[in-house]
Write a protein that binds this DNA or RNA. Structure first.
Lengths: 124, 124
DNA sequence: ACAATAAGTTACCGAACGGTTACCTTGATT
DNA sequence: AATCAAGGTAACCGTTCGGTAACTTATTGT
């Protein structure tokens, strides 16, 4: 096999990491998949995130086609529900494999309390 | 299942993307695995990368335990050979799954010339 | 009429990341 | 003695990313 030049633009891994690599994006995808799917719910479950950044990350996931917004019309204060798209669900499957990799390979780097959680059905 | 608060520090996906998400890191891992394993070889095969950034990315991969430096002593001009560690090889396997995901799911976003390459045994 | 609430938006800031250019070190070759 | 080549390091710069704090909009219950 001979190698020509390489271009970061066409690298699949970079495409993948661009999709997933906002600080809060993997967590948001996980939450949305588990019905923590409204702005205020996410604010409750993710401390240390600001409204602005939450909005940005959600908009990013949306414009990459991983989630979609369902804005319920004629509701009291505005109600928006986020859902995974098909693409988002497929990505989540891949994400689950990475988590499995992390659990088996990276286990010694995980704090003890986290291990208990990981041994249950819970995985961030 | 009930949800408590979420912390980006303990997110496996973030750990993974931190390992892999330098602009050139996936490409460098791929090259090293395929014996393009010296500084000057990498400079040849990755146009648009500077010495400084190549050094930084390699140092990052090294300090994350994905590659190691083998500096051949008493050589004419300095010779350094990079190798994947065991951890690096395991990571590459995961990376291959992501590439497979990219090839099947993301195919329509790939330029034609790239498809030919991807259909062969070549994958960045 | 007015306050409360969901879901934002705007202005601003500091740190991190990738990039450019120039310089350095060490041993081999001429 | 001078030069070349491999593999860097140092100084500097602009953009992007996450974060803080304050302001906005629309509707519904009191």
């Amino acid at each position: 096999m001979s190698f020509s030049h390489f271009d970061a633009e066409h690298c699949f891994i970079n495409k993948f990491t661009t999709l997933i690599a906002g600080k809060w994006k993997p967590i948001l995808l996980y939450l949305i998949q588990n019905d923590i799917n409204r702005f205020s719910l996410m604010m409750e479950h993710v401390p240390n995130i600001s409204r602005k950044v939450l909005t940005e990350q959600l908009r990013g996931l949306e414009s990459d086609g991983l989630i979609y917004r369902d804005e319920l019309k004629s509701k009291a204060p505005k109600v928006v529900i986020y859902h995974l798209t098909e693409k988002g669900e497929k990505l989540r499957q891949l994400v689950d494999e990475i988590i499995r990799w992390g659990m088996t390979y990276d286990k010694e780097e995980v704090p003890d309390e986290m291990k208990k959680i990981l041994d249950s059905d819970f995985a961030q």
